[in-house]
């Protein structure tokens, strides 16, 4: 059986005396857009919400940071850094960034012809944003515009 994170985190915060966190329960079924062309001819956009940034870029902060970093897919993995409010989960990504941003695998899948190509920049944000309003009003429009500018045919999302 898989871990019941919602139950565990809700109980943990209750034990700490916090006000209950309001989880997102989608009320409607999701929209569904079929692939317009085969994967092997498609450009893939990539988003990691692990708070990854590249050496030379600004780290994320932990108070509802809705900013986005564009990390070139050719970035050497030793130049990938992380700042995410749940730092306890970053132990392994900080040793091997490919645990949450698999650039080597993505470049290999492009070389293999499994996908048409991967957008030159992978996008990164700090997914631990408490304000769902700010996710909707700030983060999502920014990401949507960037993916549109990249002319991607599909998007691959990697939470932490």
């Amino acid at each position: 059986m898989s871990v019941r994170y919602i139950d565990a985190i809700t109980a943990r915060y209750e034990n700490l005396g916090y006000t209950p966190y309001r989880w997102v329960y989608a009320e409607d079924p999701p929209a569904f857009t079929p692939m317009a062309k085969p994967l092997a001819n498609s450009r893939i956009g990539v988003l990691t919400t692990s708070g990854a940034y590249a050496l030379g870029q600004t780290a994320f902060h932990y108070k509802d940071d809705t900013s986005v970093r564009a990390i070139p897919k050719t970035t050497p993995k030793q130049d990938i850094r992380f700042s995410h409010i749940t730092e306890n989960y970053l132990e392994d990504p900080r040793r091997d960034s490919e645990c949450v941003l698999p650039l080597t695998a993505l470049n290999r899948l492009e070389d293999d012809g499994f996908v048409g190509d991967v957008a030159d920049d992978t996008l990164s944000c700090m997914g631990g944003i408490y304000s769902q309003r700010r996710v909707r009003e700030e983060l999502i429009p920014d990401l949507a515009a960037r993916f549109e500018a990249q002319s991607v045919d599909a998007v691959f999302l990697i939470p932490m």
Partner: peptide
């Protein structure tokens, strides 16, 4: 939370016509 942020983003992109 990171996981639910991703769900919100994916649902939006898909609504706008991009498979995720």
């Amino acid at each position: 939370m990171c996981h639910q942020t991703v769900s919100l983003i994916a649902r939006h992109l898909e609504t706008a016509g991009t498979p995720t």
